[in-house]
Design a protein around this nucleic acid. Sequence first.
DNA 1: TTCTGCCCTTGATTTATATCAAAACCTGCC
DNA 2: GGCAGGTTTTGATATAAATCAAGGGCAGAA
Lengths: 235, 235
Amino acid sequence: MGHPMNKRQLQIKPQAFLANLPLFSDMSREELDRVAAATVPIHAPKGQAVFQCGDTCTGFHVVVYGQVKLGFTSAQGIEKVVTIVTPGQSFGEAPMFLGTPYIVFAQALSDTMLLHVAKHAVMDELACDPGFASHMLSGLSRRVVSLVRDVEAYTLHSGQERVIGYLLADVADVIDNGRPVEVQLTPGKSVIASRLNMTPEHFSRILHGLAADGLIELNGRTVKIPDLDRLRRST
Amino acid sequence: MGHPMNKRQLQIKPQAFLANLPLFSDMSREELDRVAAATVPIHAPKGQAVFQCGDTCTGFHVVVYGQVKLGFTSAQGIEKVVTIVTPGQSFGEAPMFLGTPYIVFAQALSDTMLLHVAKHAVMDELACDPGFASHMLSGLSRRVVSLVRDVEAYTLHSGQERVIGYLLADVADVIDNGRPVEVQLTPGKSVIASRLNMTPEHFSRILHGLAADGLIELNGRTVKIPDLDRLRRST
DNA sequence: TTCTGCCCTTGATTTATATCAAAACCTGCC
DNA sequence: GGCAGGTTTTGATATAAATCAAGGGCAGAA
């Protein structure tokens, strides 16, 4: 499932991709060129670390294709996934602005293409483009809101509710006219279980419990939701 | 325990307080005046709601004195404290920048003085002062980092570890030369228990367990830490 | 001082979720 | 096809923390 077309395009012009991101969407041609000049594409095969916890941060990353997990490792070596970053999303802005080392690690979950935008370029544009600053503030604000929502889920919702929430979030944008919807559990149930702060065993049991209640149908890594509204109402 | 002096000062010049915040510290006199003109002091007696979840956001708040809890209420009426905001800190920037309603409520935990800075003033300065934008980006970045740390604590640390972490965070800035340190558990153990995502009963048991191990000494709402390093090493 | 209400503590019990262990299942590869 | 590698499921058991239910203690009111 590679994306050779995207790949080739990018090797020619990262600008093309950057220009389509909300973050850079209303930059002038010259500005975009300056940013692109400080941008370097990074190809990370499945399993490769993008950075380690504690590394110094020299810019931020944008996902072109593939997906990246951000997480931490406990003293006992247990790994907890904080976020799964998907195409069009970025990460690492906070440590970049603070000039602090990364507090999480980043690892490619599948064959992934990233863009790395150097800190100095961001700072330079920030100093002369208030519109860009606004976009950055929006991006960071969205991150804050989504983290607060995560805290809410971890502390106020049961395992089953978090699983349902995950499924619903995944199909939040699809137009369901009562039609069945499908969710792909890529890349692996264990990663999603960790993201939802539970063991793979528990996640499996919850999924099968929902299937037993007829709320979902399981088939390997794909989940079919026969009736979205019923799932929404089920909590 | 009121602060009539601060109160009087503020009624004359909110600028004086704003000017001392890192956020506004390198603004020019004129800029500061413009911001101050859009700033209104708010006095919230203990228990008063500053805003409700779902309210529209018209600016952000800064705590002058007192403290404010931010949290959510579950469908079953259970309340979870996300943060306790203390003097010099601000809150509500994220919904302000996004133009979305609040996703948490805010309530004064004690007699509290706040400043409310109107959104339009922030946006206006942002558009002409890149330095101000930088400060805002730093503030939001710090919020992101601290939320990620919270997620880490909730998911990777035991109840006891979270309690110790709270005590240590509270004394992070004091210079301990092997001297005993005191932490004040204001405003109430139940609020802190909720902040740490546990029941008051569990919090009480952990505290008394630590006391039994000689790591802390309990006396009402004050905790004495005889040996900071020992507590640090205890996990 | 005694009362009254509110925290906080203590104890007994339950529950959600983790842990441990093993079997079943894919999935690509020889 | 059949095998080796992971991943997922299933089952039995353990455990951290919640819940339920009384008590205690302290602060302010009268």
